[in-house]
């Protein structure tokens, strides 16, 4: 019971603090947008793609997308490892 009260208090304090921080953030007019303005202005000439988001995902930040594809591949490997076919008589360890 004490634990629940403590966690609730922590969450309430967090809620108040985050609300206070959120009230100061600007909405509708980003503070700094030099990089994005460069992308919007020159992305079409440099990559030839009309979709600026695609040109960022696959060209300007291509390494990021490579890591993302690797993460997806690794997750599929992990799922396959968990549901693999057990051999005859094989069990989970420590059963």
């Amino acid at each position: 019971m004490m634990k629940i009260a403590l966690y609730s208090a922590i969450l309430l304090v967090l809620f108040g603090g985050l609300m206070y921080l959120a009230a100061d953030l600007p909405f509708g007019a980003p503070l700094q947008s030099d990089m994005d303005d460069y992308f919007i202005k020159n992305g079409q000439e440099q990559t030839g793609a009309n979709n600026i988001v695609t040109s960022i995902v696959f060209d300007f930040r291509g390494f990021d997308t490579l890591g993302e594809a690797t993460v997806l591949f690794t997750a599929v490997l992990g799922v396959g490892m968990m549901f693999r076919k057990m051999k005859e008589g094989e069990e989970y360890e420590n059963d």
Binding site: P30, S33, M35, D36, F39, I40, G43, I52, V53, I56, V57, R61, D64, T65, E68
Partner: peptide
């Protein structure tokens, strides 16, 4: 801004 949208996709 397009960069944050690319990040969201990731």
């Amino acid at each position: 801004l397009p960069t944050v949208q690319a990040l969201t996709l990731t």
